[in-house]
């Protein structure tokens, strides 16, 4: 396939038409993957010898945490596309994705806290990973708030995409700063398990299905929300024209 053909979907009309057909497919796939993965994980996996049944939380926690970061990356890419090629769909997709990312971050934090209570004996610890996720959540909040605050669509798209770029750099910096800071507090005390490496196959396959489910879920939802944003934008434009005319 010619890569240039991809840009035709930057046309809002074309985007709406195409997603009309694709959206049900992704929605069904997402639901199937989520249902299969979560049921497999919840009912048909053994308990971990150390964590007991809390290991089942992994099927929500890990995909949500992955998505929390990947959604921000997707917003970064779409922001760049907006800055370089100025396709409205791209900027609106970033806007549509931000609340999903924020919810994913909350899920990752909440399930992490619930898991941490019996495992670490505390809901919250200022562990580097937890802290960076909290900071990531703040970045999402700021990004969403800036979108909401600005009335002019193009101005909002420009400002938020620059904020996304700058925010990405600072989020990355914060990640390393937080690592350093916590080491400075407790020497080498590591609370987090390195999940991917410790996961046995029994847990691994349902986890993969769940991750696929979360990714598909995100794609379906972001398409839906982008369609809404495109329509909302067109509506604002029409209303403005009416007032002028």
């Amino acid at each position: 396939m010619n890569l240039n053909a991809l840009w035709q979907y930057a046309n809002p009309k074309k985007f709406i038409q195409t997603t009309e057909k694709v959206l049900p497919l992704f929605s069904v796939l997402a639901v199937v993957c989520l249902v299969v993965g979560l049921i497999w994980g919840f009912f048909f996996t053994p308990e971990d010898y150390r964590q007991g049944s809390t290991v089942k939380i992994i099927y929500l926690h890990v995909p949500a945490a992955l998505m929390a970061i990947n959604v921000w990356l997707m917003m970064l890419v779409t922001s760049l596309i907006w800055i370089v090629r100025r396709h409205h769909v791209s900027a609106l997709a970033a806007r549509a994705a931000a609340p999903i990312g924020a919810v994913m971050t909350v899920i990752a934090l909440a399930t992490g806290a619930i898991w941490g209570q019996p495992m670490w004996g505390t809901w919250w610890a200022w562990d580097p990973r937890l802290t960076s996720f909290l900071i990531l959540f703040l970045f999402y909040l700021g990004y969403i708030a800036l979108w909401e605050a600005i009335e002019n669509d193009d101005t909002a798209a420009d400002l938020t995409s620059i904020l996304c770029l700058v925010g990405s750099v600072f989020a990355l910096l914060s990640r390393y700063a937080v690592n350093f800071w916590n080491q400075g507090l407790h020497q080498g005390a590591s609370l987090s398990l390195d999940k991917e490496e410790n996961v046995a196959d029994v847990f691994w396959y349902p986890l993969l299905v769940c991750i696929a489910g979360f990714v598909l879920f995100f794609i379906a939802l972001v398409l839906l929300r982008t369609r809404t944003e495109i329509r909302a934008r067109r509506m604002r434009a029409l209303l403005a024209r009416e007032r002028m005319g």
Binding site: L138, F170, L173, A177, V178
Partner: peptide, 11 residues
């Protein structure tokens, strides 16, 4: 907007 950006400097 600004406070999250202050995190690395503060740390």
């Amino acid at each position: 907007l600004v406070l999250p950006l202050y995190v690395p400097t503060l740390i």
